[in-house]
């Protein structure tokens, strides 16, 4: 997954920005290299904790590269979300992977041959795609964002507009509904939750569920 993200960052890299200074080019390239190397090391280490946080480091490098491309908000949010996600994922990885709990050193790979073929093939497909696709040249600078926004703000605004367009409002309404659904599902499914403790009416009068 991190490899795919690194590919994406290199795609963005090839889009010429009007003010792409040499320094920024070097920064984005270096961060891309960091992202790929840390992503590859995920499969070399023998500890679930190290693998998890190498992946986090890879994503942080991607986020930094996105910031270097003037998408400040998107880049920092990538760092925020990925740190959070990897911290939680680490718990589940240790709990569920390997021969019961992965607190001991273990290999991070299995089905090596098939995995290598799949990884190699997808890399070739993505790389060929990057090279063959006729990327549009940027014809103008991003339009002005909301009043008072910075250059980074304007780029983020136009990216969001390009991705979502008219569907922005729908997405913004749907996302809290989805979150509420997830939370409600967890609350109801939880065997030690307050519904199990206090009963269905939450008054502690009826015996609801298991105790």
């Amino acid at each position: 997954m991190s490899l795919a993200f690194s590919e994406m960052s290199s795609v963005v890299l090839e889009t010429p920005l009007p003010d792409l200074s040499v320094l920024r080019g070097v920064a984005v390239t270096a961060l891309g290299v960091v992202a790929v190397v840390t992503g590859a090391l995920v499969f070399k280490v023998d500890s679930m904790a190290r693998a998890t946080y190498l992946l986090a480091a890879s994503f942080v490098a991607v986020g930094a590269a996105v910031v270097a491309l003037h998408l400040d908000y998107v880049g920092v949010v990538v760092v925020l979300m990925m740190l959070m996600e990897m911290a939680v994922m680490g718990v589940f990885m240790v709990m569920l992977m390997g021969m019961n709990p992965a607190l001991m050193p273990m290999s991070m790979v299995h089905s090596k041959r098939r995995a290598l073929v799949a990884a190699g093939a997808s890399f070739v497909v993505l790389a060929v795609g990057i090279l063959l696709v006729d990327w549009p040249q940027r014809s103008s600078v991003p339009p002005e964002g909301p009043a008072g926004s910075t250059e980074g703000g304007a780029t983020t605004y136009s990216l969001g507009d390009a991705l979502m367009g008219d569907h922005m409002l729908v997405m913004m309404v749907v996302s809290p509904v989805m979150l509420a659904t997830i939370v409600a599902g967890v609350v109801l499914a939880q065997a030690q939750g307050r519904y199990a403790r206090l009963g269905d009416d939450l008054r502690g009068t009826t015996q609801g569920g298991r105790r």
Partner: peptide, 11 residues
């Protein structure tokens, strides 16, 4: 003087 300082703190 980050343009997204609040998000930065959160990160």
């Amino acid at each position: 003087d980050a343009s997204v300082g609040v998000v930065w703190f959160n990160a």
